[in-house]
């Protein structure tokens, strides 16, 4: 029986998340920043599925018909739904931004200062 500690998945997820954060912090292109945010969302998704599996395995040892862990996977499904909607609106905003300032460089978005 192949066994992988859940910690590995946690570390994988955290690594992806940290890479996403570094991307958000270092890049100036709004689209790339947006992609990094998607990356962070996916890191969380992995974590959810891994925990779902973990609990399922624990419950399965006692009861062969258990459905423990279903909710977590549905949750991931809803996250994807929301992410899709978010991407639609976000990209629309970026398109409008480009139309207005002819750039997607967030350094030009310093109106908050004024």
């Amino acid at each position: 029986m192949p066994i992988i500690p859940v910690n590995y998945y946690i570390f994988l997820s955290l690594a992806l998340f940290a890479i996403g954060i570094v991307g958000v912090l270092t890049r100036r292109n709004a689209i790339i920043i947006f992609m990094c945010i998607e990356l962070m969302l996916n890191a969380v998704n992995i974590l959810l599925v891994a925990f779902s599996k973990m609990h399922h395995v624990a419950a399965f040892a006692l009861d062969k018909t258990t459905t423990v862990g279903t909710e977590a996977q549905l949750f991931v499904f809803f996250i994807m739904v929301v992410a899709a909607a978010e991407v639609t609106v976000g990209l629309a905003i970026i398109v409008m931004l480009y139309r207005n300032i002819h750039s997607v460089d967030i350094n030009f978005l310093n109106r908050l200062k004024h």
Binding site: M1, P2, I3, V6, N7, K53, M54, V57
Partner: peptide
């Protein structure tokens, strides 16, 4: 968090 084990193979069918 190391106490728990994650099985890779197809026991259960929640997915």
């Amino acid at each position: 968090n190391g106490g728990y084990i994650n099985s890779m193979k197809g026991e259960g069918s929640i997915g």
